[in-house]
Nucleic acid binder design. Structure first.
Lengths: 126, 126, 126, 126
DNA sequence: GTGGTCTAGACCACA
DNA sequence: GTGGTCTAGACCACA
């Protein structure tokens, strides 16, 4: 289900976080679905259990998943997105970086809009 | 001219790179303009000279600036945008992350489009 | 009667202990009242029997309840409050933590006093 | 400065967190003060660096401290306490536990109030 | 030198 | 079996 690239400069635990969120958004992971246990997941991804645990803990802090004592980890039922100013600024900064980098690759507003549409198509499939 | 935040989780050298590129895009820095030397800049920003050097090297590698021996560092004259597949993928991944994170803050396609327009307004002012 | 939240970070057995004590304090459970058996309780709460057993053992150790062989488990008749130094220190540490955490939420002495009054009101209703 | 008890059932990283917060409240640690580096602290406490790092990261997440790239970790300048409903509930639950446990040690409202006053005296010295 | 990430592996509380 | 904590130790990016 998840696709980890240990060579990437992006930390493995962040890759796990991003991909779980992506799968939730795509509907591949539904509220109430059980995630593989830390141990199972670490075997699946051939990654250290601590690394998986770190990703799960962060996802739990963001309330995307819930841990039920002794039973395992589940996609959260009522995940209420929370906009705080900081997070918003962070996302805006990221988007600004996209614009600047795109500019230096010769991509303008239209091309980014197109990419955006394309990404939504990818994420909403299901 | 540059605005460095040592508290940010974003590395200082990346902040320098981003802001130089931003200033070029805004027209605040014009082709041929001279950049402060590594030493001057490191004094201006109260930042380690190695950090400035690293930023300059990366900017030069991307051909955004040029160093002329004995004369200094200048904004490149004929900066030809170059799209390579890797960079393109990188930008797309960044944008995808924006979409996913936005989704979890309750922001949809429209809001991202609006943010995009807003960012272009900010960057094109000049 | 008891209200267990398996999502809580507080262990289930502790939740049981706290709530039994709370109910005794409120007078909902009276000396001599019979508690459901471990099995009954575990069914009622849809919780692992071992978990209930652990809670009962701890309550018994603290002499809040008594098990009479073959008859069942009962709220203790003559529960004599016992202050030992360790327990006292524990409670003080807990209260200190309350003070520190409150401080970092902008709550001072007055607000804690008010909360305390409120909690007594809740616990003494009966 | 910190006093760790490795035998305590309270995790070491939590002990570190609590005690740093306590020292800030007491004024022993002032805004802008530098904390020992992760490595220094781990030597001081004869504790694994990872454990210290975990504590520091949590303190940073709560905005009690700040990391400045390559320079070290500092007590935050403008720590604005933030009350969110969950945290508040958490503190109230803790206080409720104090009340219940105190009750079973024969300590009533007055005694808790007295303990509270005593704790404030301890924390405000300076 | 500084913190961040990761692995390997142990031990424990809880269910 | 499940996740949480901790140690020991390596490697890396950054300043």
């Amino acid at each position: 289900m998840l696709n980890i690239d240990p060579r990437s400069s992006k930390p493995i635990y962040e890759q796990i976080i991003e991909q779980v969120k992506e799968n939730i958004m795509k509907g591949i992971l539904q509220p109430g679905d059980r995630l593989p246990s830390v141990r199972e997941m670490s075997t699946l991804l051939t990654v250290n259990p601590n690394t998986v645990a770190k990703a799960y803990q962060e996802l739990e802090r963001e309330k995307a998943i819930e841990t039920i004592r002794g039973k395992g980890t589940f996609i959260a039922q009522n995940y209420q997105p929370q906009r705080d100013k900081e997070k918003l600024q962070e996302v805006r900064d990221l988007l600004k970086k996209v614009v600047i980098e795109s500019h230096y690759m010769g991509l303008g507003r239209e091309e980014i809009m197109a990419m955006l549409v394309d990404i939504y198509r990818e994420l909403e499939k299901r």
